[in-house]
Each structure stands twice: as C-alpha cells, then as structure tokens.
Design a binder for these strands. Sequence first.
RNA 1: GCCAGGAUGGCCGAACGGUAAGGCGCACGCCUGGAAAGCGUGUUCCCUUUGGGAUUCUGGGUUCAAAUCCCAGUCCUGGCGCCA
Length: 459
Amino acid sequence: MLDRTYLRENPDEVGDALENRGADVDLDEILEIDERWRELKARGDDLRHDRNEITQQIGKLVAEGKDDEREEAIERSRELKDEIEAVEAEADELHDELQERLLEVPNVPHESVPLGLEERHNVEDRRWGFDDLRELPDDVVPHYELGEDLDVIDEERAAKTTGSGFYFLKGDGARLEHALVQFMMDVHREQGYVDLFPPIPVKSASMRGTGQLPKFADDAYRLGASNDDSYEEEDLWLCPTAEVPVTNMYANEILLKDDLPLKHQAYTPNFRREAGEHGTETRGIVRVHQFNKVELVNFVEPEESYDRLEGLLDEAEAVLRRLGLPYRILELCTGDLTFASAKTYDIEVWAPGDDFEDGPEEGGRWLEVSSASNFEDYQARRSGLRYRPERHESAEYLHTLNASGLALPRVMVAILEYYQNEDGTVTIPEALRPYMGGKEVIEGHEKVGEAALGAGERE
RNA sequence: GCCAGGAUGGCCGAACGGUAAGGCGCACGCCUGGAAAGCGUGUUCCCUUUGGGAUUCUGGGUUCAAAUCCCAGUCCUGGCGCCA
C-alpha cells in the first residue's frame, strides 16, 4: 500500500509511475475521496471536542448537585451525540472506500526499472554457464516424455487421484525432489538464512498483506468456500507461496534495529489455480497447481534494500551455479512487475528439451525459476511490519524483499533435460549426489500395471 | 469440543462507571571535573500540528459518560474430552 501522505503530496509522480506499469487506477477519484474524508474528519473532531468539554462539566455539576444545569448539559450532549454519529458514519464510509481503493493501487516502480509495458521490454542483464556447456544428445527428449519413460513423473495417475495439473514423483524422481530441497536449504543456510516451516493455510488478512488479495483472489485456492464468495479476515486459503506466511509472521510487530537484516528461508508446497492458463504449457510440470519451493524472505532497513536486492539475487543464483545449470538474469520492465514489487529480477534456467521461439540461440527455452523482488515498504505498510531505528524514536516501516531459492519442478525440468544422456538416462549433478546416497545416474524404474504390458514395456 | 481464568504504552503493572496511577527501559536536557544518583521533558496513530481527535485485544450494545457493565469473536493460560 502506498503512503497516503505521499500520494496526496505527489499525485503527478505517482500517476506517471502507475501509467508506466499499465495500471488502471483512477487517482483523481482517490484523491477526491481523501479530500472529502479529511473534511468530515475535521468536523467530527470538532464536535467530539465540544462533547468532551460538556461531559467533563456534567461530572462537575453532578458533584456540585446543580441539577438544573446538569439536565441542560445532558440535553446538549445528547444533541451532539446524534450529530457526531451522522458525521462519523459518513466519514467512516469514505475511509473504508479510500482504504479499499488504496489496496488496489500497485506499488510505484523504482526509478532504475526499465520502461516498457510488455515482456519484450524486459532487459537481459547477463548469462551464466553457456561458455562450456555439457555435451547433449542430438535430440534432447522433453522432460514430460523422459519423465514418463523413466517412470519418475506420473501425471496421468495424479489426474486420477486429484485432477489435471498435479503429478506424482516416483522413485528417483521423488528422491531428487527431496535432495534438491535439502541441498538448497543447505546452500541458503550457509548464506545466513534461518529455516522456517510455516503453516500452509493462511488467512485473508495475510494474503492481503503481501498483495495477493484483494485483486488476485482467483489465483488462489480458497478453503471451505467458493472463490466467488465474499471472504472474511479469518477465512483460509492454501499457501500460494511461502512469502505469505513468512512475511506476515511478524505482522503488526515492531522489530529492533538489531534484528535487521532478518533472513528467513522456508520450504513449502505452493498452490495456484492458474485460472485462464489452460492451453499454455499444459504438458509436463512447468505450470502445475501444486509445487514445492524454497523461498527466501528478507526484512531490511530502507536504506539498504537495493543493495540487499543484488545480494538476494546472487544468493538465489548460487543454487543454479552449484548445480551447473546455465541460466540468465532479466530485469523486468515497469509493465511486467508484479503488483507489490518496486523492482524485480527474474532468474531463468535453460531447459534444452523444447525449442521455443524466444529461447536462446542454442535452442531450448527459458524457464523462470525465481523472481527476486524489492517491495520497499509496500508490503510492510499493508502488514504492519515496523522497526525502531533508534530506541527513542518512533517506529518506521521496514523494507521487505523475497526470491525463490528456487522453484523445484522447473529446476527438475532443467536437470532432466540438461543432464540427459544419449542413452536416455540422466546424470545427477555432482552437488546433489551426497543427498542421494552417492547415486550418480537416474536410470529409471520398471513400470507398474497392465498398461505397461500392453505398451510392451514389461513382459 | 466443553469449562474456568486472562489480554491495558517498547516492557511490567494499577485503576473495576466520572474520562488511563506508578515503575522499568530508552532519548534529550538540567545537575557534575566526569559518571552514578536525583530532577525535568519526551517515548502509539490520525487531522488543517502554539491546537484538536482517537487509542485499555477486535466488533457491537447499554449510558450524558465505558479500561470498568452486557453480547459476539480472536488469541493466550489451566483443566476435562478427543487425537496422528
């Protein structure tokens, strides 16, 4: 949420910034509501002042036994009560509306963010790992086929138990998932992160704090009610990203200066409805309704947040470097920023299995595995995250940042495709072998059931 | 799930219908050769800031007046029940 005072004092600047994002927000209307609210608030304050004085008099008159004067004062107080009620009811209504509107205003992009409304305006900063690529098979088999061949990914049966967009990992596939989680968390622990294992359902209030609500209710799984139903503060949603429980863990608290920078990492499953995404990337595990992710969340002092963003990006990248997976870094343009972000870098890993038009010259495609974002005080204001710069000073909003460190399925896609061998096996990246009992190659499993017989995969 | 008790500033804690004591911490000032002690001021939010308003977990209600009485909720503690 933007600071009301800032908005009031810099309407043009904010207006331009929102236009750069392609945001559809009527700022003038918001400012007008604010103006009207302040008028009513002032009037209400005056009326209350009058009433407070009279009430105090009544106390005295009661003590002094001046019955006539007391009755008169009580009568006047009653009148004031009605007036106050009327004025404040209107003021409250305006305030609620103001709040509601402000919750739908996205963050203002940082001045260093590239201008542009479309994906193609994103700026590629650099690439890593393309200078000495592994020797790949002539035809890299896409992960969804290879996963089925090796019987380590089973989408069909997950559709049976749960629905499309879910998948089973089996045998070495499941083992690889566990290994990746443990490996990533070890890497980040070395970087100074403290582990959290958060609750998976989260309240509406938490979802609002990080910016998922109110605008993006359709993306999340609602518990115990339809997404179209109106929701209360206490209603629960399935965690769409660990950013939500972890950032809101300290909601409405005042942290000490010494607590910062606060670095937490959390491994959780993430649930996303991906409404309206059918037909795009439906094959495989690139876009699914449930996936695991290790999330990095930072709380820092405002002056340090942009330095920390660079550090955070590097901390997330470290995972790919240690796995030896080639990737690139994108600086997102104003129009491609997520709702709450002031600046975002994307990390895209190289998956050579499917040739996409916008992939690199080497073929294959880019897969986003992390977004490192600085939210400045936007989430902090919504969630009530403050710290006290000096002991005697009043509390200030801190800055929040986060990045995936990293999203598991897409890393697995990259491993299955980039570490693929000519014979259809997959070499396990060296960094992961200690987490898989020293195993070096994924050779696959014998399939189960009569369908395997019919396909000639078992005798 | 049931019963009982509880929630007051950064922290502790009083007031139990008449408009939030006191202490601790922290900051600044006075005092001091310097420090401690002592004294003073400050230490939540909002507004049109020499001023005013709001704020005793949240939301309602009673009253001229609510931290205080009533109702509902959230969370905490204890007991009982249930339970991987």
